[in-house]
Amino acid sequence: MVFPARNRDIALQPTIDHDGKALTLRPIDDPAVDPQPTTSAERWNQEVQRASFGALIGAGIGLIIGLPLGGIILFPIPMATTAIGAGIGFLAVGGQPLIDAGHRLLQRPALIGPISTNTSAAQRNLALGR
């Protein structure tokens, strides 16, 4: 199977899961294809690593702003401006891809279907993870 992408063709190998419900397409020995994260946690970690430099710069700017305002005596003011600056820098560099990755990470897919009324309370609690 061949897939056209960015003015070139990529050979793909289709694989069907053992239960027959999922199809996976993997590139066949193409060094130009970068591997992409496969889970939402991997995607989140990739975006956090990309945006962490912005958080560091934002924290430094926040500290520079907060020290003259609060000085050393009123320590919570520089700490607050540092945290706010880090958050702003994190979001400014990460942007919408970071927000999307965080949203996907926080969404939990339904692990079970509807619970039958024939099940016991112990089985329902087990299915719900209680």
Rank of each mutant, 00 (worst) to 15 (best):
L106W: 00
I73F: 12
L67H: 01
D19S: 09
G62P: 13
E42D: 15
G129A: 02
L12Y: 10
P68L: 00
R8H: 15
G102F: 04
L12Q: 04
P31W: 14
L128S: 09
Q107V: 01
P68Y: 03
V33H: 14
I57E: 00
G95K: 11
L12H: 05
T81W: 12
A5T: 13
Q49S: 13
L23V: 10
R26L: 08
L111I: 07
P76E: 08
Q123C: 03
L67S: 05
L91C: 06
I73H: 09
P31Q: 10
L91D: 14
Q36V: 14
G129Y: 12
A121L: 11
I10Q: 10
R26F: 06
L25K: 08
I16P: 08
A55P: 01
R6V: 13
D34C: 14
P78T: 01
Q13V: 09
Q36N: 11
L106I: 00
L105W: 04
P78G: 02
I99Y: 03
L56G: 08
L105R: 03
A122P: 06
Q123L: 06
P27H: 09
I88F: 12
Q96R: 02
R50V: 03
T39S: 13
R130T: 05
T82V: 09
L105H: 01
L126G: 02
G94D: 02
D19R: 13
P14E: 10
G58R: 03
A11K: 13
I115K: 03
D34G: 11
I115A: 10
A121W: 04
L98T: 01
T117S: 06
G60T: 03
R130M: 07
R6A: 14
A32L: 15
Q46M: 02
P114E: 13
D34T: 14
R104H: 01
A41Y: 15
A80W: 12
A51D: 01
L128F: 09
L63Y: 12
G20N: 01
A80K: 01
G94I: 04
R26V: 05
A5W: 14
L25S: 11
E47H: 08
A80P: 06
Q49P: 06
A41N: 12
I115W: 05
R130V: 03
S40L: 07
I88K: 00
G66L: 05
Q107K: 00
L74Q: 07
A127G: 06
Q13F: 07
M79P: 01
P14V: 05
A55Q: 04
D19Y: 10
M79W: 09
F90W: 05
A59G: 09
I65T: 12
E42Y: 15
D29C: 07
A83N: 12
E42H: 15
I88L: 15
D30S: 15
R26D: 04
L56D: 00
G71H: 11
V93A: 07
E47W: 02
D30W: 13
G102D: 06
I84C: 14
A86H: 10
G102M: 07
I77L: 14
A83I: 12
E42F: 14
R8S: 11
T82K: 12
T82S: 14
H103C: 00
G95I: 00
S40A: 15
D29F: 12
